[in-house]
Simulated scan of single mutants.
Amino acid sequence: MNVYDFTVKDSKGNDIPLSNYKGKVLLIVNTATACGFTPQYKDLQDLYIKYQDKGFEILDFPCNQFGKQAPGTNEEIAGFCEMKYKTTFTTFAKIDVNGNHAHPLYKYLKENGKGFLGDAIKWNFTKFLIDKKGHIVRRYASITNPSKIEGAIQKLIAE
């Protein structure tokens, strides 16, 4: 099993199989638009611009479970990110990452992610780095700025 076995919804409610991303390096992030870490959107976008043509994708999953910091509809959240941070990577539908209603993708990430194995997601902007084969390489805490992951992304792109 790997991340390609899951299907998620985009911000418009369409089913998107993650198998669409086969062969790409992925950074999966649970986000929020009203969080102290929200400015990380800029750093995420910078990475995306730099590496998207080399096979890198960011999968943005808004989550309202932490202090209700992702208010609004899916389309409002996507619009906010595009307008305020000029994001061009895909913002998916809002999901739960913990608890009984946690999305199956996040259940898998938590159970199989290296670093913090099995731990609940602590806050917004937890990041999972995925290799080209759909395997979890590493989990990064919210406080890890996306720019600090760049070397690991470069390495995976080169493999």
Score class of each variant (00 low, 15 high):
Lys133Asp: 13
Ile157Asp: 02
Phe125Asn: 00
His101Pro: 00
Leu18Thr: 14
Lys24Met: 12
Lys50Val: 03
Lys155Cys: 05
Thr31Pro: 06
Gly113Phe: 02
Asn112Gly: 09
Phe128Arg: 02
Leu105Phe: 10
Pro17Val: 10
Pro39Phe: 07
Glu75Asn: 10
Gly115Asp: 14
Thr87Asp: 07
Phe92Cys: 05
Ser11Ile: 01
Ile143Phe: 01
Ile16Phe: 09
Leu27Asp: 00
Lys54Cys: 08
Lys132Pro: 08
Thr7Gly: 07
Tyr48Glu: 07
Ala141Ile: 10
Arg139Trp: 04
Met83Gly: 01
Asp43His: 13
Gly67His: 11
Tyr140Met: 11
Gly55Met: 10
Phe6Ile: 05
His103Val: 04
Pro71Asn: 06
Tyr106Arg: 00
Leu18Ser: 08
Ile49Val: 11
His101Met: 09
Asp43Gly: 13
Phe37Arg: 03
Ile130Phe: 07
Asp10Phe: 09
Gly13Asn: 14
Asp119Val: 03
Asp119Gln: 14
Ile149Ala: 03
Pro39Asp: 02
Trp123Lys: 10
Lys54Gly: 01
Ala34Met: 14
Pro71Gly: 08
Ala32Cys: 10
Leu117Met: 12
Asn20Phe: 05
Ile153Thr: 00
Tyr108Ile: 08
Asn145Gly: 10
Lys12Met: 03
Lys127Asp: 02
Thr31Phe: 03
Ala32Trp: 02
Val137Gln: 15
Thr7Asp: 06
Asn30Thr: 10
Lys22Gln: 14
Gly36Asn: 08
Glu75Pro: 01
Pro62Met: 05
Gln65Ala: 06
Leu156Cys: 04
Phe128His: 05
Thr88Leu: 08
Pro146Cys: 03
